[in-house]
Design a protein around this nucleic acid. Sequence first.
DNA 1: ACGTCCTGCAA
DNA 2: TATTGCAGGACGT
Length: 856
Amino acid sequence: MSQKELYLLDGNSLTYRAFYALPTTLTKSDGTITNAVFGFTKMLLTLIDNEAPDSIGVAFDVGKKTFRHQAYEDYKGTREKTPDELRPQFKLVKDVLEALQIPFFGMEEYEADDLIGTLAKRAEAEGYQVTIVTGDRDALQLISDNIRVMYTRRGITDIVDYTLEKFREDYELEPIQLIDKKGLMGDSSDNIPGVDGIGDKTSTKLLKEFGTLEKLLENIDKVGGKKRKATLEEQADRARMSKELATIKLDVPIDIDFESLKISDFNNEEAYQLFNDLEFTSLISYIGGHKEVKDFSYEEIDSIEDFKRLEVGEKLAINLELSGEKLTRELEHIAISFDDQNYYIDLDENELLEGLREIIAGKELLMLEGKEQIRYLLQHGIAVDTLAFEPLLADYLLKPSEQEKSFAELVQGHLQRALPESDDKELLILKTKLLFDLEEELITKLEENDLLRLYQEVELPLLNVLAELELNGIKVSKEGLEELNVKFKEKIANIEEQIYELAGETFNINSPKQLGVILFENLGLPVIKKTKTGYSTSASVLEKLEGKHEIIPLISQYRTYTKLQSTYVEPLEEYINEETGRIHTTFNQRVTATGRLSSADPNLQNIPIRSEEGREIRDVFVAEEGKKLVAADYSQIELRVLAHISDDEGLKEAYQHGLDIHTKTASEIFDIPLEEVTSNERRKAKAVNFGIAYGISDWGLAKRLNIGNKEAQEFIELYFSRYPKVKEYMDNTIKQAKEEGYVTTVFNRKRYLSDINSKNYHKREFAKRMAINTPIQGSAADIMKIATIDVANALKEEKLNAKVLLQVHDELVLEVPEDELEMVQKLVKEKMEEAVQLDVKLEVDVKVGDSWNNME
DNA sequence: ACGTCCTGCAA
DNA sequence: TATTGCAGGACGT
């Protein structure tokens, strides 16, 4: 039988510690600061995890004044008042304790310290081993053979365990002498005065000699040093009072039964809900270990006849277990759930497909990793008519800024359940079954957030379309790539040689560090800009050095070609699918915070176009024999969106009259007639127009245009005076973000901006720019998503063979048989322009070509 | 092997 | 000290 153990925590001190140890940027998505609660909870759970205590009690201060204030008015007088960010968190700490069923207590007039002292000594007398957990060193005076103190040294994880032995070693005193020591040296943090001129060293020396403050004062004549003796005599009362203040009360009239402090099972629903509400995702695992979902049964099907005979409901969850690489996947097994029935189907691939084809026709499907599975099905000629639910996508809409989550995290976060450890088969079935639970939960949450329409009418249908796009892929000329490879290789070798010649030595031109030495030390060129780690050699720096040395343009050229070579020419070849001769990128629907898609493996949304050398790469993206590539892009969709959401007359009018918006802006801010705008003025205006959509600063615009801050500021002010409602829109959006914690797009897509009320200037300003940009970029993304769906569906409806291959934010790339060209061009333009009805017209330019370069 | 920095490509 | 991404090479651990 082990000894009875009791852990007593100083709730106040630990919460304070947590508050100062963690940044106040730790917030819920609505902006509520939770750093202290989080820190406290983490300490508590770690403690429980490490120490497995069987009894815990948490003490709090109650009220502001204590008996110590009556004795000494200035007690804790130097303390700053509790920060506003911290005060409301005490309530939350108590909520956490309540949910975890851990008792806490407090008493008027007494500090948490006194309660802990009293209880510790009483428990010790009853035979307990007591551990006091606190951030306050005062508690060390309570140490004994059966009482130890754990206190937080730095942060919240660095905890020191003080036993009697360690205390004696560190202090050369007995724990109780700590109060005498404080009487002598005082404590600035509590504003306890002590005796002038006596500090750490002297107090220890005196106490080692005399034992206590009282004995010291009795034997004052034996104290060495005239001055010290005089001060001690003079300040004897002050010393006695200081000691009293520092003494933890051991006789507080508190009535607590230690039996009631026994820890109980805290894996309860309330704790889950609270942690969920506080968004303590990472802490849920501490309380989540036990609650698993295992109670389910399933049936195994191993004949195609049985599979086909399954009478499935209208709505079913299907889960395909796929192996292999993206386009060569093989179907191993299937799990199906509906109406509380679960099936595991183990047949060969063709039979599985055959059965599936029959089973899912016309049904509403719940799927996990929908795009992967739908792409596989499409590849085998099975179209999914109605995708009714996909959990990862739903979770993304609710929290688009968060990192992509695993299925287990989703189950944890939304169902408060832990996935059990089990074999692949059970897990597959369980996941399938859980799709129904997730559907219920997530659809409700989407509904509550007004996101259901966006989910059902945009994101889910798009998921289907993206599977098609990926399967389609785009044809890439291997020979073309090879030619480019040779051409660029020669260029690079040539430039490299010249650079080494001019530098007088060979070095790694790709290393900014080595290049910096060559340019700024060996060649003595002026340093334009520095990075954290050394000289900056960025393109803008090189541009400023142009003309100062022949090596500079060569470096720029070298950079251009090696960039193209290593990022595009070389890697692209590897991505060409041997069977299709095409590149099949992956479109990710759950990455961006604004609602855009992203593309990876390879990224086909950043293929060069601006530079002459770079756009040659587009030559290798070609149409099949007998077909053409068609590229349709929105003209200035973001600025049109801005005109719409700001409702600015000037901006809207410009578009209604079909004016060139940059020329129009130039004429406004330079106050000249449209016809007189020069190309340089238009260029500046264009930068202003773009900058506005990004939440511009004068500094940023100045840098971009290479002009003075003041001039840039004037441009911005002029812009706002000409387009006043744009300014209004910005102010309102920021205001909304501050109040609601999020901003929205025209289709109600949300983005939470937790930093919008941050005390940190940079974070706050950054959040403001996001607040301005997100509705613009995000609304454009919404529109493009709808257009992508509409175009893909219209092609199918019209039974055309044209296919959508790529989406590049404001552009769709299609591959079109020559005999469909005319019709498809018209159809695409129409669908894109009519995807939504805004206050300004959307315009789409359609171009045709044999390759993605030089289209017209 | 992995993470960070710098750099640069797109809309 | 302009928004959103993906990705390469260098370099440090």
